[in-house]
């Protein structure tokens, strides 16, 4: 069988989701941590809906996945330099000056 890729960033297959579920990782957060989907460069933009749909199907309903995993900024990979000046000088504390 050829691999059916759910998460291209971390090479997670549809089969991986099934096996993880069988091993007891039966909620989105656990499934995500165990298989690694959504933890790569795109942070879930091309896999979260597939994984949620999988879980909704095996658990019997959309309400079984009503909450998405916690959203973790930034929305897209962004250089550290972009944030280094994001606080007013007084807030940042002189000791962290780059």
């Amino acid at each position: 069988m050829p691999k059916t890729i759910v998460c291209r960033c971390e090479d997670v297959t549809e089969e991986d989701l099934k096996r993880a579920f069988e091993r007891g990782f039966r909620d989105l957060e656990s499934l995500r941590r165990f298989t690694g989907f959504g933890t790569g460069f795109c942070q879930g933009k091309s896999c979260l809906c597939h994984a949620a749909r999988f879980l909704a199907a095996v658990k019997g309903g959309d309400d079984m996945v009503s909450d998405p995993p916690r959203t973790r900024p930034p929305l897209r990979p962004t250089p550290f330099a972009a944030f280094a000046g994001a606080l007013p000088e007084a807030d940042a504390g002189a000791e962290e000056k780059p």
């Binding site: 900024p73 330099a81 944030f83 280094a84 606080l87 807030d91 962290e96 780059p98």
Partner: peptide, 16 residues
Amino acid sequence: GSSLRFLSRMSRSLMR
């Protein structure tokens, strides 16, 4: 929750 304050302080510190 996550804060911009942390992200900013951490970025400065790492860049130093």
